[in-house]
Design a protein around this nucleic acid. Sequence first.
DNA 1: TTGAAAGCGCTAACAT
DNA 2: ATGTTAGCGCTTTCAA
Lengths: 341, 341
Amino acid sequence: MVGIDEVARRAGVSTATVSRALSGRGHVAAATRERVEAAASELGYVVSASASSLATGRTRNIGVVVPFLNRWFYTSVIEGAQRRLMQYGYDLTLYNLSGVSNERGTVFEHFLLRQRVDAVIAVSLELSPDEVHSLHALGKPLVGVGGPIPGVPTLSIDDLAVSRLATEHLLSLGHTVIAHIGGDVDAEMSFHMPTNRRLGWEAALRDAGIDPRPDLYYPAVFTMESGYLAAKRMLGDPRLRPTAVVVASDEMAIGAILAARDMGLEVPRDISVVGIDDHELAPFFGLTTVAQFPEGQGEGAVELLMHELDQARGDDEATNVPLPFELVVRSSSARPRADRD
Amino acid sequence: MVGIDEVARRAGVSTATVSRALSGRGHVAAATRERVEAAASELGYVVSASASSLATGRTRNIGVVVPFLNRWFYTSVIEGAQRRLMQYGYDLTLYNLSGVSNERGTVFEHFLLRQRVDAVIAVSLELSPDEVHSLHALGKPLVGVGGPIPGVPTLSIDDLAVSRLATEHLLSLGHTVIAHIGGDVDAEMSFHMPTNRRLGWEAALRDAGIDPRPDLYYPAVFTMESGYLAAKRMLGDPRLRPTAVVVASDEMAIGAILAARDMGLEVPRDISVVGIDDHELAPFFGLTTVAQFPEGQGEGAVELLMHELDQARGDDEATNVPLPFELVVRSSSARPRADRD
DNA sequence: TTGAAAGCGCTAACAT
DNA sequence: ATGTTAGCGCTTTCAA
C-alpha cells in the first residue's frame, strides 16, 4: 500500500504539501500541485480512509437507516441518496432494521454511534427522543425522509394534501360515493402517514359537501395482497356501491384492480381506482396515481446533510421541507357510469 | 468523545488492557475485564472505528456491489448479507452501479479501493479480470453471488438445472408443447444466466425426446411488462399452441399470467405457467415456480468472507458453491386439457 | 507557498 | 496477566 510519504518523496515535497495538494485545502502552487498529482497517480496512491478520518474526525460516510429493504419506496430513496452521496465523495452505509431481532438498540449503540458515520438519514422511521438525542449529542446531523421526526429536519410529502388531491380528482370526475382503502392503525410504517391519508380523503369529501361514511373506509396493510382482499370486501358488499376508491398506496391499488378483474368488474367502468406513489408498476397497470418522487427525496436528504456538515453544526432549523407531488392520470379513473344507481 | 485512556484511568489499568478486555483478544483476568467493562459503559465509551482501523488495518466493513437496487433479488441478497454481517459486528457499505453515469470505474477506483472495506461481495456482476485483479492485489477477499466470476469464489444456483426442473415438472404433467420466455442476449444482467436457463429448457425437452422448437422461445427482458408482451405474442400466434411455458423469472411469469387473463384465457386450464425465483408476489398470483433463496445467498456470501478473512488470505479456492433450489407447485400449473389439439 | 512535527485514538509487540 | 511504547497514515497548526 503506497502511502503519502512515498508520493511526497517522488514529487520532491513534504507530506503536508501532498495532503494540501490532493485535498484541495490550503494553497499550493499550481506547478507543485501538478507534480504531486502526477506522482500520486503514477504510484496509484489513494488516501487511507481510516488515517484521514482519524486525523480529521470525519469519515465521509453516511448512515442510512431503513425499516425494510424490500419495498419500492425505500430502495428508491436509497438509490437517490447513494447517487448524490457518490457525487460528494461519500459512502453510504446501510442499516436495515428489519433483520434486527434484538431490537434496534443494537443498531444505534453498536453501529451508528461507533463513530462510523458523519451523519444519518432515517427513512420512514419514528426515532425516539432518546435516539435523536444521542445522535445530536454526538454532533451527528440527522435528517428524516418520509415522515416528520420531532426536532429533526425532515423531507416528506404532505400526506393529507396528497390524498386530498387524489380524492378531488375523483370528485371532479363526478364521483360522489368514494371509498378509501388505507393503512389501519399507524402500525408497521409508524408515522401518521396512513392516518393522514385517510384524513385527506375525508377532508376532500367534506369540502365537497359529502359526509365521509366510516363504512367506506377499508383498513389494510401496505401490500398488494392486502389491497386485493380489502377491495374484495368492498366490492362484494351489496350495501355499499362506491364508484371509486382512493387507495393509500399503489401496491394496494394494484391489488384492488386485480380484485375487480377477478370479480368480473371493469376498471374504470365499474370502479375507478386511484393510488398514491407512482410505483414502477403503476404504468403497466394503467394506474392513476399521485406521484411522489422518492429518489428525489433521497437526493434532497443528502443535500440537506451536506449543507449541515458544511455549516459545522449550524442551525438545526428542524424545518420540515415539503416535497412535490403530482397527479398522474392513467386509465384506472374515469367518469362514473351514467346508468348506475 | 470519551477515549480509551479515560476508561483506563477509571478502571485503574493501562490502555492496552482496556483494548484487550473490550476486544476479547489477549488474556485478561475476569475481574479486570469486569472493571473495564463497567468503566466503559459508565462513560459511554465506544471505540473509534477509524483509530482502530488505522491500528489494525481492518475496517470491519464490507462493500456490497449491486447493478440495481429496485429488484427483489438484489434487495433480498442485501438483506441476508446485512443481517449476517451485523451478527459479526460488520457494517455494510452499499455500492449501486445503476446510478453511476461515468462508468463503474469510479466505484472501483475511488471507493472500493480506498481502503474503506475489508472485502467485497459482488452481486450478479460480471467483474473484469482487471477489477478482480486490483481487488486481489489489495488483499481484499471477494465473493460473487448470483453468477460465476472467473477466479472468484461464487455462490449461485445452477441455472441450467433450475430451468430443467421447471420444464420437467411440466413434462411430468403431460405437457409436450412447452414454450420458453427468457432473457434475450446476455444483456442487462450480464452473466450467462438467461442463456443457461434457456439451455435447461432445451435439455429437458431433448431428454424427453422432444426437439425444442426455436419458435417457441420468446426473448424478453426481466420485467413484468416484458413478460406480459412476450406472452401476448406467444398466445396470440395462431400457429403455435403451447400448453405450457417456462418463464425465466417470476416477474415475467406474472406478466404472462396477466397477459393470459387479458386474452380471456385461463391459467392453468389453457396455459400452464412456471416461473423461477419464488418472488414475494408469487404466492399471491398462485405461481408455480422454482424457488431460489437470495437471502440465504447473501448470508452464505458473508460466511464465506468471514472464513476468508479469518484465514488471513487463505486459499482462494475459487470454488463455485452450488446453491439449493426447490420446486414450489402452486396453482398456475396443471395437466394439459385432454380436449386440446 | 512550503516544511517540521505534533497529534488523532487505538493496537500489538515486547517487557515485565 | 498487565504495562510500556512504538507505530498505523494522515492532517494541521505553527514557523519559516
